[in-house]
Amino acid sequence: MEDIMDIVIRTSLGFVILFILTHIAGRKAVSQLTFFDYVNGITIGSIAAAMAVDSSIGMVAGVVSLGVWTVWIMIINFITLKSVPARKLIDSEPIMVIHNGKILEDNLGKRYFNVHHLLKQLRMRGVFDPNEIEVGIMESNGHLSILKKAQFQPVTAKDLNLSSRGAAASQFVGKELVVDGTVIEKNLTESGLTRQWLESQLQSQGVTDLNEVTLATINPDGTLYVDKKSDQAPLNQHVKK
């Protein structure tokens, strides 16, 4: 009976601690998890499970182990939040794997994906012919983002001028030009844009200091999307359940 009560107490304590730690460390949707997030989740779950059923592990030791691991997760999250190079190192960068219907095998290999994996992801998106894709980008979590060629996109009133957007889309799509106040010079150069153009565009949107910018990306049509740190949601705005 004592063994059963010990397991009940350990399991309940582990459940409560996990509930608290997941709120402290932050949560992401499953589709947004990177491999690093996935490993962290498994490790924390394993520690909690061991603490719950292994009586040779003291409850204090289990709690300390969970706490230390969570602190490290918070430190890494803070570093990646503030540092673009650290974010690239830990989460990796999105990489183009399809361009103008052609599969870029070298880039695909950098994510340890093969053609069969790529075709499977395309089929899951309803695409059976890679030639329909203008741009395919492998995200850091392994998800494939695609932009179809103009002739394969659903027709709407806004799409009537799509025939002139193909080249611009392949040149600009997915390009982050400013992240947390830091200009991504590589993306700026690859997009055929200059620092002067970027500063002019930012000034036209009321931005005088790069540190004001959380994110600036170039849209497929060549316009600049800017999200400023000073942007705030309306007060008392809640999502209806």
Rank of each mutant, 00 (worst) to 15 (best):
S204H: 13
R27P: 00
A61G: 00
K241W: 08
D3V: 06
S31M: 11
I90R: 02
P94N: 06
A167E: 14
L33R: 05
W72D: 01
T22G: 02
V39G: 03
D209F: 09
S145V: 09
A150R: 15
K229R: 12
K149Q: 15
L147Y: 15
V60H: 00
Q171W: 10
Y38Q: 09
E176T: 12
I47N: 03
V39L: 08
L81G: 05
A233P: 13
D221K: 08
T189D: 06
T70N: 03
S204T: 14
T156D: 15
K149T: 11
I103K: 01
S164T: 15
K102P: 07
D180R: 07
P85L: 08
V226S: 14
D37I: 01
G67Y: 01
N219A: 14
D231A: 10
N211C: 12
G14R: 04
I44H: 01
L66C: 03
A216R: 09
S230R: 07
W69D: 04
V39W: 01
L198F: 12
V135T: 14
I47W: 03
Q205E: 15
I76E: 03
N219K: 13
D3T: 06
A150S: 15
D91R: 06
K241F: 07
L118C: 01
S140M: 09
D231K: 09
G192P: 07
N100G: 09
L118W: 04
V97R: 09
F113P: 07
N100I: 11
A29F: 02
G45N: 07
T156H: 15
E212G: 12
A168N: 15
F172S: 10
V8S: 06
H116N: 02
Q201L: 07
E93P: 05
I75T: 05
E2W: 07
D231Q: 14
N114R: 00
R27N: 01
L81Q: 07
V183P: 11
Q151A: 10
G136C: 11
D106E: 10
E176C: 11
